[in-house]
Computed example of a mutant assay.
Amino acid sequence: MDFDNIECVSTVDEAEVNHHNSHPRHAHHQSPSSKPHNATRNSIDNGDNINNIGSPTAAAPASSVSELLECPVCTNSMYPPIHQCPNGHTLCSTCKIRVHNRCPTCRHELGDIRCLALEKIAESLELPCKYYRLGCSEIYPYYSKLKHEGMCNYRPYNCPYAGSECSVVGDIPFLVAHLRDDHKVDMHTGSTFNHRYVKSNPREVENATWMLTVFNCYGQYFCLHFEAFQLGMAPVYMAFLRFMGDETEARNYSYSLEVGGNGRKLTWEGTPRSIRDSHRKVRDSHDGLIIQRNMALFFSGGDRKELKLRVTGRIWKEEQGPDAGMCIPN
């Protein structure tokens, strides 16, 4: 679904950007505050290949035992049940199904032989988090390591762009540059915003992400989403904010959204969701400003044949309050 016209106004610099056919022109681009690190375009959480992300902060300890616990098929660490063929070659239980119960090394039929000795050895190991290169210095017992890595604060972030199934992962400076350069997302500096959305045929409402804008304030980055989707049988529009960082940091900030017309208005106030939560998860939880189509058309006025919505809002640090003034750009 394409917009016929979108205007994005940042009230800090009073600049206005016109967008056509969902491909915005960028009048302003705010560069990330630090140089982005390299990142891989493949999912990292499924493996240990993190050599291309970030700068090493610790040396990886050499361990021939830990190498023995690496599955030869998926290269991930093996957890019970660890299987072996009659010739002693091992692999994880997931890959045993993938290779149709035949050893990938010698092609011998696997059967149901467990490598109990290797499982016992694993219990005695303590290994560093696989994100040690990204700054995590924690060391965990082998069987606790996997659970930690699923929640590690140093694990890379997924790209927050909602308009495609983007597989890029990386740290925040890298993702900001990626959103700007690869997805052509608008970049704005300041804690207040003023967006005007225009759609010539609002009766055509389908699941679509219409806009994502990145704001830089308080030394952090925030993503503003605005989209249309079906809520049950009713077409709705929704706006919400996501924080480019972890949930604990997101709780330090609040934001407000307002939309209205014809003497009426709707307001929303909440805490931005971390980009650790997927775009779909936030949308499906209805954690944002939801506008029914009939109400949106009423706000638009006129003959109700064109959608004209102006969404305004601001971001503030929780301890300062919403009236503490604008943030100072970096």
Rank of each mutant, 00 (worst) to 15 (best):
V65A: 07
R41D: 11
S66P: 00
M78W: 01
A39P: 02
N76F: 02
G54P: 03
I50A: 00
R41I: 06
S64I: 12
C71M: 06
N76V: 11
L69P: 01
A27W: 00
T57R: 12
P56Y: 06
E70Y: 04
A39H: 00
T40K: 05
N51H: 14
N51Y: 15
G47P: 01
A27I: 07
P36I: 02
H28D: 06
S66F: 08
H37W: 03
I44M: 08
S34C: 05
I53H: 03
N52K: 06
P36E: 03
A27C: 03
N38H: 01
S66E: 10
P56G: 04
S34F: 07
S43E: 15
S64M: 12
I50T: 05
T75C: 12
A39G: 02
N42K: 11
E67M: 06
T57Q: 13
L68T: 04
A58C: 14
T40Y: 03
E70P: 01
K35Y: 12
P80C: 04
A59E: 14
S31E: 15
L68C: 10
S34W: 02
N49M: 08
A62Q: 14
M78G: 03
N42G: 12
N38C: 07
P61S: 11
H28N: 09
P72K: 03
Y79C: 05
G54L: 04
H29W: 10
P32N: 04
A58Y: 15
R41W: 06
C71G: 04
A62N: 10
E67V: 01
A58V: 11
N76T: 13
A60K: 09
T57V: 09
D45F: 13
P61K: 10
Q30L: 13
A58Q: 15
C71T: 05
P32S: 01
Q30E: 13
S34H: 07
G47M: 07
L69A: 02
H29D: 13
Q30A: 14
V65C: 02
N52S: 08
P36L: 01
P61C: 10
V73W: 00
H28T: 07
N51Q: 15
V73M: 11
N76S: 15
S31G: 13
N49H: 11
T75A: 11
T40E: 08
G54T: 05
Y79T: 04
S77T: 07
N51P: 05
S66D: 09
P72W: 03
S31V: 11
C71F: 00
N42H: 14
A39R: 02
A62M: 10
A58P: 09
S55L: 13
V65E: 02
N46T: 12
A58F: 15
S77I: 04
P72N: 01
L68V: 10
A58H: 14
N52A: 08
S64V: 14
H37V: 00
S63C: 10
